[in-house]
Design a protein around this nucleic acid. Sequence first.
DNA 1: GTCTATACCGGGATAGAC
DNA 2: GTCTATCCCGGTATAGAC
Lengths: 195, 195
Amino acid sequence: METRERLTTAMAELLWERGYAATSPRDVLARAGVGQGSMYHHFDGKHGLAVEAMERVVADLLAPSALLADGDGSPLDRLKRYLSLPRAGTRGCRVGRMTQDPQVVADAELLGIVAGAFDTMLGRWSDAIADAVAAGELPASTVPDDLARTLAAVIQGGYVLARAQGAQEPMDAAIRGAVALLDAASAAARAATSA
Amino acid sequence: METRERLTTAMAELLWERGYAATSPRDVLARAGVGQGSMYHHFDGKHGLAVEAMERVVADLLAPSALLADGDGSPLDRLKRYLSLPRAGTRGCRVGRMTQDPQVVADAELLGIVAGAFDTMLGRWSDAIADAVAAGELPASTVPDDLARTLAAVIQGGYVLARAQGAQEPMDAAIRGAVALLDAASAAARAATSA
DNA sequence: GTCTATACCGGGATAGAC
DNA sequence: GTCTATCCCGGTATAGAC
């Protein structure tokens, strides 16, 4: 059990640092500190190991999005708080990153895990946005599914900008700009309501 | 001259379809229809060929962003029009894509080209946003550099979402949501001005 | 300048000893 | 279950003929 765990952990780390295609079984074995054969005893190969590693990564990453549904404050506060969670931009998103890897996109099983993660995530965004609209914090004309994709895109795009510049700042700036936009939209909603 | 051109064109296409790491000199030569040695006659290898190909791609991609500075309509109209330009989401951004490739990020020259492209792009966004603020179409509190990064991130993130789902729709939805947010912010700005 | 042939290395998987 | 040794293939670069 120990060895299996070490392998998935090592694979998850390397998937983040280098991506799927750029990670070789050799690298994984070296980091896990196990011999060549162990990986093929526990898994069918690089693919199977990556599947198990990604399933764990997705589960970990989806956990904090519970903040969108629960927690203190108004729905809009929860949206802004989740948006503003610290994110190490230059390291990239462990899930979104996979999307640019041709070998991942060509692999139905891996792509399915990634697609499922985004589905779940976007559903949570949509629900929280619908709550904010119902509370009169966002304009009644807001389309929750659209705005959910916009906000998820700001985060994913923030990673892209941060990596392009090799700096955290573009990510933080993108989030600040999105929060400011939400505040302005909220002001417009309140003005319309009181009219 | 002919051969050199065929090589950079083939490399640019493959960079888009498969990324840098996943593109082999073999692939490029096959697509360009030239022999093995030609590439090493004109370039120092895969790296040099990719540099020249990316420089051309960046120049092509930056051209339409002139729409942000010129064109009909108010500054806000121009922002919305540029945002709404058709983009094939599932194919990904030819420049932003590079950002997730470990071999590109580790390559100072290639990364420099990518970083420079984003610098130029973001500057144009910022200028157009500042124009919109000056025209009273966006709140005076707007930070142009922040919003520029937000909008660029929506586009880049839209590509990520589209590829994750294997569909164009998430990209279009993300853009619609951003445009709606801009409209709401604009309404708030006008309300504040007339107050 | 362009071609074919070839060298070298590392990715990915297997065999089989312990 | 885990290890080492080995195999095959393709990525990348070079040699050298035409």
